[in-house]
Computed example of a mutant assay.
Amino acid sequence: MKITNIRVLTDNILAGLRLQRGDDFSLFLTAPLPELQEGAARLQRHFCGNHIDFCTIINGRSGRCGENCRYCAQASCHHTGIDEYDFLPKEEIIRNARANQEAGANRFAIVTSGRALAGKDFEQALEAYKEMRDTLSIDLCASHGLLTREQFKRLRSAGVTSYHHNIETSRRFFPQICTSHTYDDRIRTIRIAQEEGFCVCSGGIIGMGETWEDRIDMAVSLHELGIESIPVNALMPIPGTGLQNRPQLSGDEILRTIAIFRFINPTANIRLAAGRKLLPENGATALKAGASASITGNMLTTSGTTIKEDMEMLKKLGLTNAEEGCTAGMNTCGSR
């Protein structure tokens, strides 16, 4: 299909059309940004209402990762000077989760470095999730790498409902950013998580040297996978990593990417992640033009925004983080 008019395309998507691999997406790159944003905003209002889903994360284990992802500050092959520590005490994790819940976050995730969480550290994570499930109401997410089916079963039993595992970029460009595991390793992990009943949160990073075609390919791949939550990270080049000299993206380029992702994944939560500081008004513009979710609070290796600041921003924008959500799979993403 050839896309010739953004307004007509928006109407057709609202009526049930879904874009597919092989469609002509060139208009997304030439249409005036305000026109593209207007269409993305209409789609967002229709499928997500006024709801903005806020998730928070804690870096549960840091550094000493044996993978060679070129963007990552935690890879042992890079020399970034980040803090390195083993799995955090359960008490510290639960204290953070409770504070985030009280501040209004919808979801809390433990994120750990390394190819996969295993052994004693995985058992500690399970204990933390079980106690949070029993004592808190916040929804639980995990991000522990390339897990086995049995591990996913145990996570689900412990109360985790969402699993985060980015595909990072297009299949074509993936070998340019990582060779210690494959794109198919990531796809396999996502499919197992879905088969075991998890809502999967999966997106990627833009600004690593990929083309616009790579970004569109990533968006289409996420649509084909049925992903319900899509974090869009803008690379924040970190000294000591393999991408330390990459130029930062402009706010307009990030906004165009977010709008395109909304057109290709109209019912998903498009989630602001790393690089929010590069956006106009710290992401407020994006939250009215395609983005229906955001990571909030202290992020992994880039500065974030406090939950209080984000709640104040929502109020000014006439938005809410009350439990409504996009139409795609919110019972899976937001229920225990």
Rank of each mutant, 00 (worst) to 15 (best):
V220D: 05
Y71Q: 00
P247A: 01
A289H: 14
N331G: 11
S180I: 14
Q151R: 07
R61C: 13
S202P: 01
S26Q: 07
I258V: 15
G290F: 10
N5Q: 15
S229D: 02
R271F: 11
P34N: 08
I295Q: 04
C77M: 05
S157T: 05
N5Y: 14
L19G: 12
C65E: 08
R156E: 03
G203L: 11
H79V: 15
N12D: 10
R156Y: 12
G297T: 10
E312K: 14
F261A: 15
E168K: 11
L43I: 11
C65K: 04
I192C: 01
S62K: 12
V160T: 13
D310L: 10
G325K: 11
I307V: 09
A99P: 04
G66A: 14
L36R: 08
A75G: 04
N282P: 09
I94H: 07
I93C: 13
K315Y: 05
S292G: 14
I230V: 12
I6P: 03
I260F: 07
L9E: 09
T112N: 01
N166L: 06
D214T: 10
G114D: 03
H165V: 09
S76N: 14
L278Q: 14
I6Q: 02
G251T: 13
P175F: 13
T257D: 10
G60R: 07
G204A: 02
R271K: 10
L29Q: 07
G39Y: 03
Q194G: 02
I227A: 09
L272W: 05
G197Y: 05
D139Y: 04
I6T: 07
R215H: 09
G39P: 01
L136G: 13
E195N: 05
C48Q: 12
D134I: 09
Y129F: 15
G251R: 09
M208K: 06
Q176W: 03
P175I: 01
D134R: 08
V232G: 02
C199L: 05
K316D: 08
V8Q: 07
T320C: 04
R188A: 06
E127Y: 00
N12I: 00
I205D: 00
V111L: 09
G329C: 13
K315N: 02
A322V: 13
E131G: 04
T10K: 09
P239A: 13
A291Y: 01
I230N: 01
Y163G: 15
I295L: 15
N331D: 15
V220Y: 06
N282H: 15
L279P: 11
A105S: 15
L33R: 00
T169S: 08
S170G: 08
E195R: 06
S294H: 00
R246N: 08
A293V: 07
S335N: 14
E312G: 14
I264C: 00
L126K: 14
I94M: 10
S157D: 01
N331C: 10
L243F: 08
H165L: 11
E312V: 06
R156G: 07
